[in-house]
Amino acid sequence: MLKNLRVSLVLLLICGVAYPLAMTGIAQIVMPAKADGSLITDASGKVIGSELIGQSFKDPKYFTGRVSSIEYNGAGSGSGNYAPSNPAMIERTQKDLAAFLAANPSVKQEDIPADLLTNSGSGLDPHISPQAAKIQVPRIAAVRGIDAAKLNALIDEYTEGRSLGLFGEPRVNVLKLNMALDQLK
């Protein structure tokens, strides 16, 4: 029994303390920005978000991201995991659809990309599809008085390709796009 306890304690120290500390130390040396959470700072150096966690943008002069059932709370992740037929899911989607259409009156319902009305699995996804960004251009162009062609070029500039050229879909980080939007004249 004492032998089992010692083995458990040694494994706890190796796997629960030494290994995590070693990996964190190596990550801090090899890729410090990613090890610290891929933080995004403004020109003054103030942290305004993470490249990995979405944010809520309610102001009509900004691009909006995906729906988040956890309000982009990075302390946890998750989704409601409702079936498409679930009454709560239908009600939430109809409410979000109505709000999007009210904010974007030039958009037809059938043209709205699904990623603007659906949660990601984690509820933290900071990305939307390029189509989801471009469908918001008329609203932002009108509110900010910026030419739509300039906004579309900005979206193209901030569109990230597939991971390793093979995985996933092209995507746009909403926080980075909105930061660049604020820099436009």
Rank of each mutant, 00 (worst) to 15 (best):
M1V: 11
K3A: 15
L5N: 12
S8P: 00
S8N: 08
L9V: 11
C15F: 15
P20M: 03
A27K: 06
Q28D: 07
V30E: 08
M31T: 09
D42G: 03
S44Y: 12
S44L: 11
I48K: 05
G54H: 00
S56D: 12
S56C: 14
K58V: 07
K58P: 03
K58L: 03
D59F: 10
K61V: 09
G65C: 03
Y72P: 01
N73Q: 06
A75Y: 15
S77W: 15
G78S: 12
S79E: 11
N81A: 15
P84Q: 06
M89G: 11
T93W: 13
K95W: 03
D96G: 07
A99H: 09
F100E: 05
S106R: 12
V107I: 11
I112A: 08
D115S: 10
T118P: 04
S120A: 15
I128P: 05
I128N: 01
S129M: 13
Q136R: 00
V137M: 05
I140Y: 07
I140S: 01
A141M: 14
A141V: 08
A142L: 12
L151S: 00
N152L: 03
A153E: 05
Y158K: 03
L164Y: 07
F167D: 00
E169R: 13
P170K: 14
V172Y: 06
N178S: 07
A180S: 09
K185L: 10
